[in-house]
Design a protein around this nucleic acid. Sequence first.
DNA 1: AAAGTCATACCCCAAACGGGTAATTGCGCC
DNA 2: GGCGCAATTACCCGTTTGGGGTATGACTTT
Lengths: 216, 216
Amino acid sequence: MIFTAMNNKTAMVLLEDDVIFGDGIQKMISGTKDFYCEARFDTVTSFNKGFSQLTSNIFWVDISLPDGSGIDVIKMILKSKPTALCLVCSLHDDDKHIFEAMKAGASGYLLKNTAVDKMLESLYELQNGGSPMSPYIARKVISSFRDSDSSKSSVLDALTVRESMVLEHIAKGHLYKEVADSLEISIETVKKHLRSIYTKLQVQNRTEAVVKYLNR
Amino acid sequence: MIFTAMNNKTAMVLLEDDVIFGDGIQKMISGTKDFYCEARFDTVTSFNKGFSQLTSNIFWVDISLPDGSGIDVIKMILKSKPTALCLVCSLHDDDKHIFEAMKAGASGYLLKNTAVDKMLESLYELQNGGSPMSPYIARKVISSFRDSDSSKSSVLDALTVRESMVLEHIAKGHLYKEVADSLEISIETVKKHLRSIYTKLQVQNRTEAVVKYLNR
DNA sequence: AAAGTCATACCCCAAACGGGTAATTGCGCC
DNA sequence: GGCGCAATTACCCGTTTGGGGTATGACTTT
């Protein structure tokens, strides 16, 4: 469903399959003096069909749609409009949905239980370079950066200085001989270090050791 | 500077070296009916000295302090109080400071030009499980998740279905034999697949291949 | 001075790996 | 309906790696 343009207002698009909820959002948008709803869709298919005619830069998207995921829609939008702002509004508060949406390029993430005034505020925040998130989402997002470490000692800490150097080279795909030349020690010593590493990391071969090293 | 306790209010600590700004924040906190300032410090040293006597769970911390970084203070706080909420309030809006603070475990990040009412709102948001961030910060944070591109074809896309399956197993540290058993093919076939993988990924051995796979 | 850890180095041998070659299957295309 | 091509399967051979033992000198801790 595509509507007519309006002067002095920012165009935005609504993708939401729940009729009641969609009506509410559309009404909310219409009630502002700064935004208007250029188009409204309730399926991925209809959105794709109408997309090429849209001029909006702001997209309000639900994730769970009857015929697909809003996350894929976001990817599609950003492929042809890299500066588009996609605001997810979803019931989902699990890591998978949240982080997939972010990876896809969402510029904000609201839960559906958000108060209307907060939703409105979010639109303005979005437009002004912000990334509105429901508090619970923001906490998850910011927490994901937290170094589980600082206190928790990694198994890698058990390695000696020399062992760490060896593992670092090994993780680059080097052979015993190459590591030996780099560190100016004999191949046998490299082997010895690597065996200590395997023991300490409780792994059986170099691949497992490298995986542990890379996931530090 | 440590103050006396107050009933029915949430205790919080202020770490800020700018006297004028600190006064403003302290006044703001005092003006609320839900928070009070248990203590106020202007250096890392004085904070460390007083820390053991503090009961607060909320910490308002500046990053640039005359004798050190607030980021280290956050690490220290969380080491002894893992549930503490640290709200950074800083002038710094560069990636390094932002993400270091998040890694250290900050629960929110405000820029100093934030309006007072937003600052207040942030305290409540923090207490209610949210992670207040200035819009600019939130946008940076959320953008950092964005897949530099879902359109850019990874070298891994060149792999056939079977090759991908093989690589997936290999990346778990499995041996030829284990992969062969899993996929119910002969060891020799696994080896052949892996060699095709090496060619396509332009690597010489399994470690390099696994590194490329893990960095996908 | 003794005990312990780290880094160095060597030997041996079985298991795993990497590279060359080749047969078979499966699928699109004319 | 057969041709072409990629994908999948498979074997052989020489090299690399993994795991075992042993040993010596430097440096720390006790």
